[in-house]
Design a protein around this nucleic acid. Structure first.
Lengths: 210, 210
DNA sequence: ATACTACTCCCCCAAATCAGGTTATTTTTA
DNA sequence: TAAAAATAACCTGATTTGGGGGAGTAGTAT
């Protein structure tokens, strides 16, 4: 079988021991080939485009620019490559920023070697590999708070407000009177203890009422 | 070992063959126990609370009320249980509605039996099991459009507008003049070819500019 | 039967915000 | 060093917003 069909992998990871571990793991797995490995984005920037990787394993904590902040720049250098975040951090802010910046997967560093290999394969086949706990956090981000103080109609109207629509437009689209919309909004503000659109939206989002 | 430590599983699935397949699979796996299986939500509603399942496998296409629409009602009956969607459908609308309605995982029906078992275990351990393609769609939902016509500042301001903040407040928080914010907004409207907040937000969200 | 909640609609008011036009300077970046 | 981005100003009129009050109807629960 031709080596040309190997999955081409690049690695950016500052810890030499860990980095060499990945190089060894991937380099010795049939069907996979390490085409580059670097300790920082700055080092990778010059060569990574010509490495032409299919998948990049990217660490978050790097000297210089962080992996997450480097993501948009990396995307420009290798727009076709899939990027998998490999990190010890499980903070939701980091996860969502990474995914928003173009990562296609997010693995924690306790991931066993065979899972890293299967994650590389998975992302090449259209999957979105995530560690279990990460996946739970991602799913949780979609979920609503069951204990919302808002009624169905109030929730609906606040959602509409959060899309920037005026009360008049909301009234038209819901086939109710402008005065009714105003009444609902007053009730929403009272329940959430706020005095403006922005605060209502913030409180509702923070508490997952919308 | 006591049977009391078994993971208690319920199943709602209208196709009898598939349902019995799950019952057989789970019932014959050590550590797992089927405490109820029903062909529809209506049938399940009466008994499911007393079944006291840890995990519910829920089909989407059911006679009567759909699995997704039944989710909020199920949540009220068994608020502590984890719910895994098991379906042939992979449409993003269904996935996001399911997750928003309280599902903790989403599996497609081509999932091999051992994966179903491991998904049940995974959700009990704090994970969020998803089929590969589903995970990719979920991750994609976080990603921005690289080809946005908006500049960094314009994107930032439109994001602020989408939180309901007034121009004045945005100006204060970004330490720039109100007139500057207005200029940016004018440019945003021109680029997106819209004439209102609501339309700008809609266009930007539809195209993943924000 | 009754109390409660949700949803609906009405009046008033003042203040603030929004959309659009035009021009121009300073920074930043390619 | 050009080009692009970010900044700021001045003008106008229409629209929206937040807050005050009150009130009727339908459905649900007790």
């Amino acid at each position: 079988m031709s080596r040309d069909l190997d999955i081409r992998v690049c690695i950016i990871e500052d810890d030499e021991t860990i980095r060499e571990g990945y190089v060894y793991l991937i380099g010795n797995t049939p069907g996979y080939k390490v085409v580059g490995s670097y300790p920082s984005f700055e080092d990778a920037a010059k060569k990574i485009a010509s490495d032409d990787p299919d998948v990049l394993l990217l660490d978050v904590e790097l000297p210089g620019i962080s992996g997450i902040d480097a993501l948009p720049k990396i995307k420009k250098l290798i727009p076709e490559a899939y990027i998998l975040i490999l990190t010890v951090y499980e903070q939701d802010i980091l996860i969502f920023r990474a995914l928003g910046n173009g990562a296609s997967g997010y693995l924690t560093k306790n991931t066993p070697p065979e899972k890293i290999i299967s994650a590389i394969q998975e992302v090449m086949e259209g999957g979105g590999p995530m560690s279990a706990h990460i996946a739970r956090m991602v799913i949780s981000s979609f979920q609503r708070n069951e204990a919302s103080p808002l009624t169905r109609r109030e929730t609906e109207i606040l959602e509409q407000i959060a899309t920037g629509k005026s009360r008049k437009r909301i009234a038209q689209e819901l086939f109710i009177d402008l005065e009714t919309v105003k009444s609902h909004i007053k009730n929403i503000y009272h329940k959430l203890n706020v005095h403006s659109k922005a605060d209502a939206i913030k409180t509702a989002k923070d508490n997952k009422f919308i």
